[in-house]
Design a binder for these strands. Structure first.
Lengths: 194, 194
DNA sequence: TGAGAACTTTGCTGCAGCGCAAACAAGTTG
DNA sequence: CAACTTGTTTGCGCTGCAGCAAAGTTCTCA
């Protein structure tokens, strides 16, 4: 969709689908920064006073989106005061999210981080099914690993063990949370011991 | 100075000194989000569309600052267009910083993170001395640990070993970087092995 | 329908770094 | 200057989780 460091030629509004935003380190490792859901703006480098994209965006599933050339940004912000105001609120809440991520990465164990990540995805994109709440796009163990700073192996092990306990159900590139509440307990848990 | 979750009564401009911004987890662990240097705005919850502070601020050393009641925020932004624009640029760059932190926490080892943290502090607040560049306010091992998501013990061990190698010099609550370049190599290093 | 690609599971091994504990500075205060 | 308080160092044991390796599954495409 667009690439890190590339000239920020356009900004987008996602109408349908899901987009993964990733950052790549010099040595090739990828870190998922966030997932974009329908209705969200993306590629808003201009709002941050940048001329290049700070990250890459990849469609997690087929998407429909509107695109405008970057140079329209100031005009938009001018012509529609609410547009500007809302954008800044968006940026603000992304800053919050990022700080939350930093705190999680600093203080939580891998299992808690993965649990939090799943809950976040479920909240953001969950679709109710008769088995529980399903994450509404294909997501691999690798993807989850890149969100939580771990390896696909560890994620696989965690999901297996949670499936045994009836917390989640997963097939290839699909995850369904069966018992959000118990998963939340696990995510918050570990007060000292456990 | 102000506390997390507290009503955002004021916003501030730091004139002199250094401020540590921290987030506290429900179970009492503290994570340092960033350090504020003279000339920077702080407590700008209002710019993010919030009414409470998202974090706590503590003077790392005696400070001089200007404070305005929060309700003046919209007036300021209105009356001085540059003020508003600049603020949003600030927020944007903080978002960048936060994402960088996330990437570092996800992909780097503890020693690299500590090295990066020291370099960042040196760049932001360093003062040249005849021994190297000194971080210009009292900073304990514990503080560094809270910036990097590790323990004071590990930080202590790292600093000791770096001191042996002549990379840094440290006394109680003081750190001087003697060889920034070699430290940078260490921070970036570890391409595969080493 | 069969070969290959992509994703997942699982066992085993090793070690970075945390937790604990105890001794040791270096300031600070009466 | 003696008694504290606060920060630092260092040793040791343990463990969470990464790395490696090798099957096993599911999907896709010719």
């Amino acid at each position: 969709m667009f690439e890190q460091e590339q000239e920020a030629h356009s900004f987008f509004l996602l109408l349908d689908g899901h987009v993964r935003v990733i950052k790549t380190t010099p040595d090739g490792q990828e870190v998922t920064v966030r997932y974009i859901s329908p209705g969200e703006l993306m590629g808003i480098a201009h709002a941050l006073g940048r001329t290049t994209y700070p990250a890459s965006a990849i469609a997690a599933i087929d998407c429909v989106l509107l695109a405008w050339p970057g140079h329209l940004w100031p005009k938009f912000a001018d012509a529609f005061p609410n547009f500007g105001a809302n954008t800044y609120k968006t940026v603000g809440s992304r800053l919050q999210d990022a700080h939350t991520r930093v705190v999680e990465m600093s203080t939580e164990q891998v299992d808690q981080r993965v649990a939090h990540a799943l809950l976040k995805l479920v909240k953001q994109t969950g679709r109710k099914t008769d088995e529980g709440i399903m994450i509404d796009f294909p997501i691999s163990r690798q993807d989850i690993a890149e969100m939580t700073g771990t390896t696909l192996h560890t994620v696989s092990r965690l999901l297996s063990s949670w499936e045994e306990k009836g917390l989640v159900k997963s097939r290839r590139e699909k995850v369904t949370v069966v018992e959000p509440h118990r998963l939340l307990v696990l995510a918050e848990g570990r007060t000292g011991k456990n």
